[in-house]
């Protein structure tokens, strides 16, 4: 018996979401009285993988084959399932990253293991196995029971703190025994979306809507994001007219995010927008209309003209960071 955690790397580094998943898996293993093992695929230094010990992982299985340098959900599912067999895993934990969400359902079928995605809390293992997740785009919460012997959980970004303190994890070379024909997808080009912080796992997010009047006015929003080391987001109304790229669109039909801080500037707070951001820990709303529905869903608000307030706020934030860093 063990808990196996699939850890993702990017350019040779473990992703933050991988450490969150590792922390979740190790905590769960502790509760179940078993060990937490991890599986890593593709090129990454052993010294980097060994740091998963800090999150409580005892051993990392590593298949280095460069075939895994690009994601192919079918090949990855075969490899992770083989690792789960080898580890005797009864629970597999993944992060709710884009790749984690593509891989986990395949794994569920392969292992005949019930799967709950986007877990927001540690599974409850008292007399069963129950996982909490947001449903109805944040308008409800559901407790799912997994009824199979094997279980799979994907962990929502920013929902579970990264543990630290353990020693170094042992590394064991692993081969799932796949052949070239198991890899069906050929990546021909990768386009990076600029230097900014990717939105899906960002801890701080600055977002703006139609209240900004036009794409030429986003400079102050990007400046705030730079000061805060935050990602930028936007309302659908704004991405629909191409003021901002599609991947910034949050809400019921865009991305669902749960950062520690969400700052919404000139966004009315339509129910479909709130659905994507309501699980943010702290919400700040800046809007000229005191009746804007977003104020009802916010922790802090400033009523007024964004074009006046945002530059002043940027100055205040700069001052704060220069005295706190």
């Amino acid at each position: 018996m063990s808990v196996l955690i699939f850890v993702e790397t990017q350019e040779g580094k473990l992703k933050k979401s991988a450490r969150e998943a590792a922390s979740y898996g190790a905590k769960l293993a502790g509760k179940l009285g078993t060990d937490a093992l991890a599986i890593a695929l593709g090129k990454v230094e052993h010294s980097e993988l060994a740091t998963l010990g800090q999150q409580g992982v005892t051993k990392v299985l590593h298949e280095e084959s460069s075939n895994f340098d690009h994601f192919d959900s079918r090949a990855y599912a075969k490899a992770v399932a083989a690792a789960a067999d080898k580890a005797g895993a009864t629970v597999v934990v993944l992060s709710s990253s884009f790749n984690g969400k593509a891989l986990a359902p395949r794994l569920s079928v392969r292992l005949k293991a019930g799967l709950v995605s986007n877990a927001t809390e540690l599974a409850n293992t008292d007399g069963g196995f129950t996982v909490k997740k947001a449903v109805f785009s944040g308008k409800g919460v559901a407790n799912y029971s997994i009824t199979t012997d094997k279980k799979i959980v994907t962990v929502n970004a920013n929902s579970f703190p990264i543990a630290s303190g353990g020693g170094a994890a042992a590394i064991e070379d692993f081969s799932a025994g796949l052949s070239a024909s198991d890899f069906a997808i050929k990546i021909t080009h990768v386009e990076k979306a600029g230097e900014g912080i990717p939105l899906p796992e960002a801890e701080l997010v600055v977002s703006a809507g139609r209240g900004l009047k036009g794409p030429e006015n986003w400079g102050m929003i990007e400046e705030m994001a730079t000061i805060l080391h935050a990602a930028t987001a936007c309302s659908r109304a704004v991405s629909d007219v191409d003021w901002r790229p599609h991947h910034e669109h949050v809400g019921q039909t865009g991305l669902t995010i749960s950062p520690n801080l969400y700052i919404a500037v000139g966004i009315s707070g339509a129910i479909q927008h709130l659905a994507g951001v309501s699980s943010s820990k702290t919400i700040v709303v800046i809007n000229s209309d005191p009746e804007a529905p977003f104020f009802k869903a916010a922790d802090y608000g400033i009523v007024g003209d964004a074009f006046q307030i945002v530059p002043k706020l940027n100055d205040a934030l700069k001052k704060y960071f220069s005295s706190h860093n």
Binding site: F98, N99, I185, I187, E191, P198, E201
Partner: peptide
């Protein structure tokens, strides 16, 4: 879409 970009692929 991938986190922080896009990937073009053939299959």
């Amino acid at each position: 879409e991938i986190e922080g970009g896009e990937e073009t692929l053939q299959v």
